[in-house]
Write a protein that binds this DNA or RNA. Structure first.
Length: 103
DNA sequence: ATTATGACCCGAT
DNA sequence: AATCGGGCCATAA
Protein backbone atom coordinates (compact mmCIF):
# COMPACT_ATOMS: atom_id res chain seq x y z
CA UNK A 1 0.00 0.00 0.00
CA UNK A 2 1.37 3.37 -0.92
CA UNK A 3 1.23 6.26 1.46
CA UNK A 4 -1.66 8.60 0.97
CA UNK A 5 -1.02 11.92 -0.65
CA UNK A 6 -1.56 13.58 2.69
CA UNK A 7 0.99 11.37 4.47
CA UNK A 8 3.69 12.18 1.96
CA UNK A 9 3.10 15.89 2.27
CA UNK A 10 3.13 15.94 6.05
CA UNK A 11 6.16 13.68 6.45
CA UNK A 12 8.20 15.89 4.15
CA UNK A 13 7.05 19.20 5.60
CA UNK A 14 7.96 17.98 9.06
CA UNK A 15 11.61 17.81 7.96
CA UNK A 16 11.95 21.45 6.97
CA UNK A 17 14.57 22.97 9.29
CA UNK A 18 13.89 26.05 11.35
CA UNK A 19 14.71 29.28 9.55
CA UNK A 20 14.33 27.70 6.14
CA UNK A 21 11.40 27.46 3.74
CA UNK A 22 10.35 25.41 0.74
CA UNK A 23 7.90 26.20 -2.02
CA UNK A 24 4.67 24.36 -2.69
CA UNK A 25 6.25 23.37 -5.97
CA UNK A 26 9.26 21.82 -4.25
CA UNK A 27 7.01 19.72 -2.08
CA UNK A 28 5.12 18.54 -5.13
CA UNK A 29 8.32 17.51 -6.88
CA UNK A 30 9.75 15.88 -3.80
CA UNK A 31 6.81 13.56 -3.30
CA UNK A 32 6.90 12.57 -6.94
CA UNK A 33 3.97 14.60 -8.23
CA UNK A 34 5.40 17.76 -9.80
CA UNK A 35 2.01 18.93 -11.01
CA UNK A 36 0.26 18.69 -7.68
CA UNK A 37 1.58 21.96 -6.32
CA UNK A 38 -1.90 23.36 -6.06
CA UNK A 39 -3.22 20.38 -4.19
CA UNK A 40 -0.44 20.74 -1.62
CA UNK A 41 -2.08 23.88 -0.32
CA UNK A 42 -5.41 22.12 -0.14
CA UNK A 43 -3.85 19.44 2.03
CA UNK A 44 -2.08 21.81 4.41
CA UNK A 45 -5.27 23.80 4.79
CA UNK A 46 -7.17 20.74 5.98
CA UNK A 47 -5.39 19.64 9.16
CA UNK A 48 -1.80 20.81 9.46
CA UNK A 49 -1.56 20.17 13.20
CA UNK A 50 -0.05 23.62 13.33
CA UNK A 51 2.89 23.41 15.76
CA UNK A 52 3.76 19.81 14.86
CA UNK A 53 3.83 20.19 11.09
CA UNK A 54 5.65 23.46 10.29
CA UNK A 55 3.39 24.34 7.41
CA UNK A 56 4.28 28.01 7.87
CA UNK A 57 7.59 27.16 6.20
CA UNK A 58 5.88 26.43 2.91
CA UNK A 59 5.67 29.46 0.62
CA UNK A 60 5.00 30.41 -2.97
CA UNK A 61 7.60 30.19 -5.73
CA UNK A 62 7.59 33.93 -6.33
CA UNK A 63 8.58 34.77 -2.76
CA UNK A 64 5.13 35.62 -1.46
CA UNK A 65 4.13 33.67 1.60
CA UNK A 66 0.84 32.22 0.49
CA UNK A 67 -1.98 31.58 2.93
CA UNK A 68 -2.57 30.09 6.36
CA UNK A 69 -5.93 28.62 7.17
CA UNK A 70 -7.63 30.41 4.32
CA UNK A 71 -7.08 34.14 4.38
CA UNK A 72 -7.61 34.59 8.09
CA UNK A 73 -4.44 33.83 9.99
CA UNK A 74 -1.78 34.96 7.53
CA UNK A 75 -0.47 37.44 10.09
CA UNK A 76 0.38 34.55 12.35
CA UNK A 77 2.28 32.80 9.57
CA UNK A 78 4.30 35.96 9.02
CA UNK A 79 4.96 36.22 12.73
CA UNK A 80 6.24 32.65 12.95
CA UNK A 81 8.60 33.21 10.01
CA UNK A 82 9.94 36.47 11.41
CA UNK A 83 10.43 34.68 14.69
CA UNK A 84 12.74 32.26 12.87
CA UNK A 85 14.85 35.09 11.51
CA UNK A 86 13.28 35.45 8.11
CA UNK A 87 13.03 39.03 6.93
CA UNK A 88 10.32 40.46 4.75
CA UNK A 89 10.82 42.82 1.87
CA UNK A 90 7.38 44.26 1.51
CA UNK A 91 5.10 41.31 0.99
CA UNK A 92 7.86 38.94 -0.08
CA UNK A 93 10.88 37.12 1.30
CA UNK A 94 14.26 36.48 -0.35
CA UNK A 95 14.14 32.90 -1.54
CA UNK A 96 17.84 32.98 -2.42
CA UNK A 97 18.61 33.17 1.27
CA UNK A 98 15.92 31.10 2.93
CA UNK A 99 15.08 28.35 0.48
CA UNK A 100 15.94 24.93 1.84
CA UNK A 101 18.26 23.29 -0.65
CA UNK A 102 17.44 19.62 -1.07
CA UNK A 103 20.10 17.06 -1.82
C1' DA B 1 -20.02 10.66 -12.29
C1' DT B 2 -19.78 15.87 -12.74
C1' DT B 3 -18.87 20.59 -10.93
C1' DA B 4 -16.85 24.05 -8.23
C1' DT B 5 -13.21 25.62 -5.18
C1' DG B 6 -8.57 27.01 -3.71
C1' DA B 7 -2.43 28.14 1.40
C1' DC B 8 -0.29 27.14 -6.68
C1' DC B 9 2.78 27.70 -11.06
C1' DC B 10 4.29 29.63 -15.31
C1' DG B 11 4.54 31.81 -19.63
C1' DA B 12 2.81 35.72 -22.22
C1' DT B 13 1.40 40.50 -22.33
C1' DA C 1 6.64 45.26 -11.91
C1' DA C 2 1.84 44.01 -12.48
C1' DT C 3 -1.90 41.44 -14.61
C1' DC C 4 -4.05 37.62 -17.27
C1' DG C 5 -5.10 33.17 -18.71
C1' DG C 6 -4.51 28.23 -19.02
C1' DG C 7 -3.09 24.16 -16.71
C1' DC C 8 -3.08 20.77 -12.64
C1' DC C 9 -4.84 18.32 -8.76
C1' DA C 10 -7.01 16.61 -4.31
C1' DT C 11 -11.60 17.54 -1.85
C1' DA C 12 -16.30 18.59 -0.89
C1' DA C 13 -20.96 18.73 -2.31
Amino acid sequence: MSESFREKVYSFVKQIPRGKVVTYKQVAVKIGQPKSCRAIGAILRANPNAPYVPCHRVVKSNGEIGGYFGQEKISQKILLLKKEGIKFIGKKIDLNNYLWKLK
